[in-house]
Design a protein around this nucleic acid. Structure first.
Lengths: 344, 344
DNA sequence: GCAGATTGTAAATATTTATTCTACACCGCT
DNA sequence: AGCGGTGTAGAATAAATATTTACAATCTGC
């Protein structure tokens, strides 16, 4: 009772303040409470994400650059945020907000979404998303558990939260993401019907959300601890790896690198990834430039959210030989433009 | 140049403030400008609706009442806002925000939307909408011009704005909405191919947005001035009218009232209205109770956004004889529930 | 080229909002 | 009943934000 009542008061205050634009003192007078209480209720509403402020970038500021990247690499959409700085943490936040906004109004029908919640940026995105009404039925994890238990917990929570936001059922992959050996992987899977089911669901995915990893080990992931070792990373680097998408290592041109590591990963396969109807990646920052180019050049994704500097890098580093769309003309291209809505 | 630059600065400041949660003084220091400028840029961003704060009502507070209205009148969805007060202006704002939020995540495919921008609440809704990516192609007005030129201008601007927000083409009905006589109407239409085209497009509408009018003349609309006269209103009241939807007058049970006024209106026909795939209405307030009941009882709409008091009235006033859905059991019913997303 | 309008600026000030701090109510426990 | 612990309230106060002011720079139309 009291909680419901408190909640309603909070919402009422939030509405009076934000949508009716009343001052806190006036609200306090009207509701017969103190101004400090109003202030506190508002703060409460804020971090219960009852109120949310969104900063809508009106039309695409970097439209031209976006189109050039799109046409060079044959991507269907590129979204460039002009980040407030090139600091990694701040950049991640900007990318996350942009991706969230983008996701929030997907125009196409989505039944199954695969999500890589172990990407830091994607977790951040999930944190800042608003609930959305979709017809999405399932949210499936793309990879098994990686890293220390704390991270696994975050990841599971993110997946669960994402599912709640979209009104879908979460499908977890609660299995070590990197097995110690091929045999170990078989063993793990054979005894885990849940994991088998999850992996099967990755066969038909409408939208997959991925991060893009560099060729170094993320500091959050202790090497060896439920993850590849430094040695294993060094090995694939020797084979030419410049980065990875869902732990599939890629060379500079985006070709997948065959190595025994492929057999150790429990998660979405190359084929499953490529067969997803839409494949969105979010990544940026100088550290990941080469990895991102590999991911787009290899056609592993079709929509990219990144920063201006990375986009610039993608344009400047000569388009690689293989499956790039058509000619090199970076002109108007085939890409559709999106809704603009600036006002007088 | 300067404008673009100013715009980008504004956005940058808005992002630093809202998404990166920096203090104004820190932003000022970082960007080498004064705190007051930061403050003003933020205000600017606010009323350019670059930033928008939304108050998301978590789960439906009035879920039970909603379901009862739904099942009694056979509506597919009812959304109740618990308005901050019963003052008409404040109520309209609440209704508008709710409708906007609702519209923003329509899950179904929409190609053509018909909009009644001469409803005050709907205009307000359009003002507070955010741009949305849809596949909507056309936004068609449901009625011709009503009232004084200033209102006509507002209406046109709203329609245009709504189209811009949805990325659709606006289709105007720039013709008097109420003709002086049947002959006059014929004459007006025969010489106006644009209007003819617009009226034709109303044949196949995916979503129509309407207000609900009481049986009194709205103060914004001077009687006679491009609108019905007091005498005409009195006449339909004598015939039993309690309200209207798109200028189609209805009796207490929601049956349409045949009168010569039907022949004077240039706008969506009864048949066109009923044939629209989805029909959403927004209205509330004691003044309109009877009109709203007529609209829902007559099956003129399938989704209603209203206030708690009105919903209560709808439940209490005995369900009318005709085409109400099934039995009288106001229990759980057939209605689906929507996404909830409350957190710990 | 210059008066008048417009816009942008920082500093000072006023207003609004957040954060103490203290008091008190409400548990669960002995 | 009496005793800490916990949480929430309002009053006072600190901090943050908005507005006013006065002046400088940049356009605008003659």
């Amino acid at each position: 009772m009291t909680d419901i009542d408190g909640q309603r008061l909070m919402i009422k205050v939030a509405r009076l303040y934000h949508t009716h634009e009343m001052r806190q003192t006036d609200i306090a007078k009207r509701l017969q409470i103190s101004q400090s209480r109003v202030s506190r209720l508002l703060a409460q509403a804020e971090d219960a994400s009852i109120v949310r402020t969104v900063v809508a970038v009106p039309q695409h500021v970097h439209a031209e650059l976006e189109e050039r990247v799109e046409s060079i690499y044959g991507l269907s959409e590129v979204h460039i945020v002009d980040a407030v700085s090139d600091d990694d943490a701040e950049l991640a936040k900007d990318l996350a907000y942009t991706m969230a906004a983008l996701l929030h109004d997907v125009a196409f029908e989505v039944r199954t979404i695969a999500v890589t919640s172990w990407s830091k940026t994607l977790r951040l995105m999930i944190d800042v998303m608003l609930p959305m009404r979709t017809r999405c039925k399932h949210v499936v994890e793309t990879l098994g558990d990686l890293g220390p238990p704390a991270l696994q917990h975050d990841t599971a929570r993110s997946t669960q939260h994402f599912a709640a936001l979209t009104g879908a059922q979460p499908v977890f992959l609660r299995t070590p993401g990197v097995a110690a050996s091929r045999e170990m992987k078989e063993l793990l899977l054979s005894s885990d019907p849940h994991a088998q089911k999850a992996l099967e669901m990755l066969d038909s995915v409408d939208l997959v959300l991925v991060g893009i990893g560099a060729d170094k080990i993320d500091p959050d992931l202790r090497p060896g601890d439920n993850f590849f070792t430094h040695e294993q990373f060094a090995h694939v680097r020797e084979l030419g790896a410049v980065g990875e998408v869902c732990l599939h290592f890629l060379d500079a041109d985006g070709n997948p690198i065959d190595s025994e590591l492929e057999d150790l990963v429990v998660g979405i396969t190359r084929e499953q990834l490529k067969s997803a109807r839409h494949r969105w990646a979010v990544a940026g920052g100088a550290r990941k430039h080469r990895a991102i180019r590999a991911a787009v050049a290899g056609g592993w994704i079709d929509t990219l959210v990144t920063d201006a500097a990375t986009a610039q890098f993608l344009v400047e580093s000569a388009p690689p030989a293989p499956q790039a769309a058509q000619g090199t003309t970076p002109a108007k291209g085939n890409a559709r433009r999106r809704t603009a809505a600036s006002k007088a």
